Structure formats: structure tokens, C-alpha cells
Simulated scan of single mutants.
Amino acid sequence: MWTDTRVARKLGTRLPLVQGPFGGGMSSTRLAAAVSEAGGLGSFGAHHLSAENIEATVRELRGLTSRPFAINLWVPLEGEKALRPTPAEFQAAVDRLGPWYDELGLARPTYPGAFSQDYEAQVEAVLALKPPVFSFIFGIPSARVLEACRAAGILTAGTATNVDEGLALEAAGVDLIVASGSEAGGHRASFLRPAEESPATTALVPQLADRVKTPLIASGGIADGRTVATALALGAEGVQVGTAFLACEESNASDVYRQALRQESARGTVLTRVFSGRYARGIKNRFLREMTPHEREVPPYPVQNWLTQPLRQAAARQGREDLLSLWAGQNAPLIRHTRASALVTFLEEDTTRVLGRLAAL
């Protein structure tokens, strides 16, 4: 049976299926619990949360499901923690976004004490709370953190967007590797090579399968039985589905965001750094088009992400699809389901159908 893989056995799930973690507040405990209850691994993107909020989230998840789930964090890139623009640079970035603040009726921000959460405090919270799975992107936690996870019985899953990153993750001793191809929606989690060089899922998975022994989870463009079967044929032992779960009513995406994922415009996605300062794949809209000419001037993450966060939040409240960061993968047009449990059932049954048809050829 295709569901009996090392990924499923390690995760302790009925299916080798992972719900992709969403950053920026798009994750919800309701969605993660629904996926876990249906037989997959629900995930919660917690990089935007304080240590105290991570604790509350884990406790809420444990109240919603007794099955395994994952907490996901972003590992800071080298030099990122110390990144502080000069007052002049900060003001220039604010002025660049000024018309958008004005249009949404927002006050222009002033220089903050910090541009992002304290990663070290976040990790300590994860270690203390002992979620079943700790997943991470944009790098590899320290050897001390990984050893503490092993000692606590926390399964670790790191993300690779190229072969070099997969080899580094295996050398570090992670339990699972998520092979994220360029089709994937949201941020490109590259940390050893430029995000623009990320190969497609169909190129990345077989190359990694030939080089590492760690079980692989394919991510990027996975939306139905055909794409799951392809990932398995290429050497993956599990799949991660993001955009299709983001479109479900249990996610924390706004109504206009979920509607955008089902529109014709979802066929046109591009890599952009205008929202966060890091490359991410999303649907083209007005903000993206009008800011793209200034993309080289945009400050790096986390500064740009901090500056656009109030814009994105206000746009969601006001139903302004044209100003949202509409992260989406290249297979968004395949989205059909509105409930997470129905999507899990569909992926299981459709994959079985496709593999059965192929076996009969």
C-alpha cells in the first residue's frame, strides 16, 4: 500500500501527507487539527509568534487533537538578527510605502525596537513544549537544538530547495527532509543557494533521492492523485500540500484570499520580494505590479516584512485583494475542496485510483 512509507511510520500518521505550514498568521489550530484528525500531519507556522504565543498555540492544538502535529519556525539567516537600517534608510522605505498606508487609512510606522520575534526564545519554547514534530525552513538549527530535540523525542523536519541544502540537512541528522520545488507557493526557503536557482519538484526530488538516505517529503505543485503519484515515483516517501489547504475554510486566510486562489488569476504566479524582502511565489495583483519596479530598492527581511505587515492586515480586514500578499503555488488551478477533511480523503482516494490505473497498464 502506497501509504505505508518511512515518512508515515516516523510521523505516526495514517498517511504520508503533511499540511504545509503557513506564515504571517495564515495558519490556524483548527486547520492543523483537522488534518491530523483526518490522518495527515497538521502544521502550524509560528515564526511570527512570541514564545508565549507559541505555548498557547501548542496547548490549544493538544486540546483539539491527540494526533501528531508540527510547529514550524524560520531559522535566521547569517547576519539577519543584527540587521538594523539607518534612520534614513528606514524613512526611505516608509516613504516608498507611504501611498499604500494613506490609501488604507493607516498611520505611518516609526522605528521599532525589533523587526522580528526572538528566534532563540521561540526555540526554547518548542523544546519545553515538546510538540511531536518541529519543522523549520531557511536553515538548520544548531547542533545543540537538534540534540535536544532527539533527547526529548521531538521529530525534526528541515526544508531543502536544492541538493546542497538536502545534503547539509542529512549531515546535521534531521529525521525528515522536505524537498521544496520552485512550484511551491509562499516563501522560497533557500539558505545555501539563491532562491531564484531552485529547481522544480520533478527535478529536485530524484536528485535528492539519489544522494540522501533520509526520507523525503515532496513539496511544490502537489494538489491531486496525479501529483502525489508522481512524487512517489520520483523517490519521495511523502508529500506536503500547502496551497490547497490554504484554500480550505479552516485556514486563517481571509475570504478574499481564498476566493483569489480559485480565480483565473491564480494561474499567473511569480516570485517576488516586494512584500517581505525575501522571494516568495504569489498571484500577481496591483501591489505586486506597482512595487515590482522598486524591487531592488526594497530592504531585506525582516525589515520589509515588518513594514508591510500592517498593510497586509488592513487589506485583509477591508477585503482588498489588490493589496494582499496572495501566496500560491503553480497548481492552484487544481483546487476543488473547501474542507480539510474532504481534501485529505480526496488525496488518499485519488492517489490510490491513479496508482491502480498505472498498475493496470
Results as ranks from 00 to 15, higher is better:
residue 12 G to S: 01
residue 184 A to S: 15
residue 131 P to H: 13
residue 286 R to E: 06
residue 246 L to A: 06
residue 263 Q to K: 08
residue 343 L to Y: 14
residue 69 F to R: 04
residue 156 T to F: 00
residue 317 R to V: 09
residue 80 E to F: 03
residue 130 K to S: 14
residue 147 E to M: 07
residue 21 P to K: 14
residue 116 S to T: 04
residue 132 P to S: 09
residue 253 A to G: 14
residue 249 E to I: 08
residue 112 P to W: 02
residue 140 I to R: 01
residue 307 L to F: 03
residue 83 L to G: 02
residue 103 E to T: 03
residue 142 S to R: 10
residue 80 E to H: 04
residue 58 V to K: 05
residue 268 G to H: 14
residue 298 V to H: 13
residue 233 A to Y: 13
residue 53 N to K: 15
residue 172 A to N: 10
residue 128 A to T: 07
residue 103 E to K: 15
residue 352 T to I: 12
residue 342 A to C: 08
residue 294 H to Q: 06
residue 268 G to T: 15
residue 132 P to Q: 05
residue 77 L to S: 15
residue 121 A to L: 12
residue 151 A to T: 10
residue 194 P to T: 01
residue 73 L to W: 02
residue 271 L to Q: 05
residue 250 E to V: 01
residue 18 V to F: 05
residue 205 V to M: 13
residue 108 R to S: 11
residue 109 P to F: 07
residue 204 L to Q: 03
residue 260 A to G: 07
residue 163 V to G: 12
residue 167 L to T: 01
residue 219 S to K: 03
residue 346 F to S: 06
residue 171 A to M: 08
residue 278 R to M: 03
residue 204 L to V: 04
residue 16 P to R: 14
residue 224 D to V: 06
residue 227 T to N: 10
residue 173 G to W: 00
residue 72 N to V: 03
residue 132 P to L: 08
residue 36 S to M: 05
residue 298 V to E: 10
residue 217 I to K: 00
residue 229 A to G: 11
residue 77 L to M: 11
residue 220 G to D: 04
residue 115 F to R: 03
residue 299 P to S: 08
residue 249 E to Q: 04
residue 102 D to Q: 08
residue 188 R to C: 14
residue 72 N to F: 03
residue 203 A to I: 01
residue 38 A to R: 15
residue 266 A to C: 15
residue 359 A to M: 12
residue 77 L to C: 07
